[in-house]
Write a protein that binds this DNA or RNA. Structure first.
Length: 479
RNA sequence: GGCGGCAUAGCCAAGUGGUAAGGCAGCGGUCUGCAAAACCGCUAUUCACCAGUUCGAAUCUGGUUGCCGCCUCCA
């Protein structure tokens, strides 16, 4: 099946055909590093991580560029607040970004450029814009003139005339149009600054993406992504800058992800409800967070609630439990040489439809249920048919996991770690549990159900759930 | 004021013309000493409302209502 993607430019799903067959070049706007990453960053980064993984799985050679904005007013403000150098602020939060994203099992992009390491390219880009008459100087500042670009507004579907009516824009009398934006900003004393034909200064926000994408992906490339909020003005401005210089189409497919709400509310400074990734990860397994983030279509808003996260956790446990069951009962081990089967095919069909991970996850649970059903019919466990089916599903589930970035641990390790975590939190000694289970076993053998149930209830109060299986009693933890 | 999105069972959610995926919760059943887990069955004759197009619409068109986002830094 052919891959289809929703293109913000044009507003509809289109068949995906990269400029160069077999190769995909994509650029995703990374963070401005002035603070820790919140769950909204996580969504964007995870969504595009999955898109890149899926494209690779489909056989494309993917060049993925994700930048860091490491010079910016907000970074400077933060530096002043902390009384440290702005580069130190950027460094600190880049480090935190990697900590968070590594924890979330996000793969590194092919190239992760920083604005401050591309000042030459940026200056040259601005010079070209001035030469071509799209930009003008006011003392040490350089502005882009939106009226010079006929197609300004084509991405976000706005027209300059419409916006002026009610826009809440600071009127800067020096600008030719209120929507003109800064390409190069002159430095005040103490601010980070680089030399330029217009004096010491720093790049405006939008220009770095035009300059760096051009540097690594060329004048025209396949996919440009980011959060929905970047559509205007950031991406609109990137198009204006890049297409003014090249005279060519900048990006073929624009992909924008929706927001994360917290209990139905937008995250905002005033509500003080920013959820930081590192805090979320103190409570939830990274794979739980990923499964949650991918359980809605990437373009829809998603609501972060404890209930939703608990459901994701239950779902993840269920998948791991099946993997463990297959491995134990059928003796199947992970094997990457097994050909993709029906399960993968259904998942892949869902992903081909605008990266519909939500539907794909539905397909995954379908497989989990049917495999459990098959395994419930105990009598045939030795049969070659069951073994083959189990092997195929097992391998497909792991393959799907490798796209979603989940199921990376062996089930044994996953459940063990979970136990350790919860037991430590509750300060329970696992030996005590084993002792109690042994004691209960004795009682059961003596058919002393009262005592047996009493022990089980005691354990239940410690969040320990028993399962009496034919091969013996096992215990699981409720976290 | 301008632009855009959304409205599907108790909750979450997929579904863009062919007769409602999946998850969670609940109830009943199989299994079990009883449970747990797993599985099976039940839970939307119906997709905010009204009108229209069509042999046929949750899906298309027009309108109404409600919610949300963007237009200012924002993933």
């Amino acid at each position: 099946m052919a891959l289809r993607v929703f293109n913000t430019l044009g507003g509809k799903k289109e068949r995906f055909e990269p400029l160069e067959p077999g190769r995909v070049r994509m650029y995703v706007c990374g963070p401005t590093v002035y603070d820790a990453c919140h769950i909204g960053h996580a969504r964007s980064v995870v969504v595009f991580d999955v898109i890149a993984r899926y494209l690779k799985a489909k056989g494309f050679e993917v060049t993925y560029v994700r930048n860091f904005t490491d010079v910016d007013d907000k970074i400077i403000d933060k530096a002043n607040q902390l009384g440290i150098d702005s580069m130190a602020v950027a460094e600190k939060y880049i480090k935190e970004f990697y900590n968070d994203m590594d924890a979330l099992n996000v793969e590194r992009a092919t190239i992760e450029p920083k604005a401050t390491e591309h000042i030459n390219q940026i200056v040259q880009f601005v010079e070209k814009l001035i030469q071509k008459g799209f930009a003008y100087r006011i003392n040490g500042d350089v502005y882009y003139s939106v009226e010079k670009f006929n197609e300004y507004g084509k991405l976000s579907g706005r027209r300059l005339e419409d916006m002026e009516a009610g826009a809440r824009v600071d009127i800067d009398e020096r600008k030719q149009n209120p929507f003109d934006f800064v390409l190069w900003k002159s430095a005040k004393p103490g601010e980070p600054a680089w030399e330029s034909p217009w004096g010491m200064g720093r790049p405006g926000w939008h220009i770095e993406c035009s300059a760096m994408s051009n540097e690594y992906l060329g004048e025209t490339f396949d996919i440009h992504g980011g959060g929905k909020d970047l559509c205007f003005p950031h991406h609109e401005n990137e198009i204006a800058q890049s297409e003014s210089v090249s005279g060519k189409l900048f990006v073929k497919y624009w992909i924008h992800n929706g927001f994360v709400n917290i209990n139905q509310e937008k995250m905002s400074k005033s509500l003080g409800n920013f959820l930081m990734i590192k805090d979320v990860l103190k409570i939830y397994h990274p794979e739980t967070v990923r499964l949650f983030l991918l359980s809605n279509h990437y373009r829809s808003p998603i609501d972060f609630t404890d209930k939703a996260l608990d459901e994701a956790k239950t779902g993840l446990d269920k998948i791991y439990a099946l993997l463990e069951r297959i491995e134990k009962e059928i003796g199947v081990q992970p094997d990457q040489n097994i050909e993709p089967g029906d399960c993968w095919q259904r998942f892949s069909d869902a992903m081909d439809d605008d990266f519909n991970s939500a539907r794909g996850i539905g397909m995954l649970f379908d497989t989990v249920r049917s495999m459990n059903r098959l395994l419930d019919q105990k009598k045939n466990h030795g049969s070659p048919e069951i073994k083959k089916a189990a092997q195929s599903d097992h391998s497909d589930i792991l393959r799907i996991g490798s796209i979603l970035g989940i199921l990376m641990e062996s089930p044994k390790v996953y459940f063990k770690r979970k136990q350790t975590r919860v037991l430590e939190r509750q300060s329970i000694d696992p030996d005590v549990i084993d002792q109690m289970i042994a004691e209960r076993d004795q009682a059961r053998k003596a058919k002393n159900w009262a005592k047996s149930d009493q022990i089980r209830n005691q354990l239940a109060d410690m969040n320990i759930v028993l399962e009496d299986r034919s091969e013996g009693t096992i215990w699981k933890i409720n976290d």
